[in-house]
Design a protein around this nucleic acid. Structure first.
Lengths: 165, 165
DNA sequence: CGCGGATGGTTACAGATGCAACGAACCGGA
DNA sequence: TCCGGTTCGTTGCATCTGTAACCATCCGCG
């Protein structure tokens, strides 16, 4: 309070910059915003590959990619490796199963556990998708210079460590 | 087409690593995944500040931040400056208005346009939030070394330019 | 004027998402 | 053997999101 604003209807011009000290936050340079913006843009672009061509949602693509990378695993393991919420994985797996891209097998030694594995068809899809994903990433990286690519990698890794946990 | 896929049925044991060539994609190092993961983690953390303490959603926080930074503006302008979808902004603005943190004024020269501006209460909230946001960012950045901070900035900027459009 | 075509903004609707609660199965101790 | 405490995974529900359709207004042109 006691700020310098002439109350009343004073047609104050535009606020913001002129507001005293470091009171303004530049959204464009704010880390959380930048990360979200980038992640969003990149995902939206990459999504075209798995969505338009294979009708996969992002959780489904991730589950598929995780299974393709690691082989047989449980739903819980997929959660950990893909950073997805329980329910997302549950639903993604259900859909992949419905499409016959993976099968479940109840673990004999612990019947709560389901061992998930890609079917032949699921593997085929995965193997088709991998080069597309790599090409996408390569194309994007190709737009950066050598130094910038290195900087990006270093920066992201550092941030991952910082957030860690 | 004409890709090197040996469509053999070879009874491969556990899939993944041993699958021939570069057929596997390491999700942990895949750019879209890394970005999403990071954005998500950072946002989730930062969210505590505006959500728990002010009951704001992310779109609301962004709209508030955009208005606080730029002063009077239209909904469309908020969309552009905050990279948010039309409807998100519409709803966020409606809620901020309901809370009496902003008011609308129909533009006299074009009655389709609404000029949005923060109320006294809205500005107060904004001014409280800004230092918290900066502190959050600083704390996070403080976990990185000098070089890493620079690398991150450089990398993100480069990526923003690359995606640009 | 009088239209067709843009533009600002809202809303109906269908999907996606997370939380919390749940059932089933396991585990360890009394 | 029985029981409480856990873990695996699913589902009900309330919320959030984007697409598309919509209304109101404006603009340019004949």
């Amino acid at each position: 309070m006691a700020t310098n604003e002439g109350n009343g209807k004073a047609a104050e011009g535009k606020r913001g910059e002129l507001a005293g000290l470091g009171e303004v936050l530049a959204l464009e340079t704010f880390l959380p915003y930048r990360l979200n913006r980038l992640a969003d843009a990149v995902s939206r672009e990459f999504q075209k590959i798995y969505k338009d061509r294979y009708g996969l949602t992002r959780p489904e693509w991730r589950a598929l990619a995780t299974l393709g990378q690691n082989g047989v695993m449980t739903a819980t393991a997929i959660c950990e490796h893909s950073s997805m919420h329980k329910t997302k994985v549950s639903r993604a797996v259900a859909e992949l199963e419905r499409r016959k891209w993976l099968t479940r097998t109840v673990d004999g030694s612990d019947r709560r556990v389901e061992l998930l594995s890609l079917t032949r068809a699921g593997e085929k899809t995965y193997r088709e998708l991998v080069p597309l994903a790599k090409a996408f990433e390569d194309a994007l990286m190709a737009k950066l210079g050598e130094r910038e690519r290195a900087a990006l990698g270093k920066g992201l890794t550092a941030l991952e460590t910082a957030i860690g946990r």
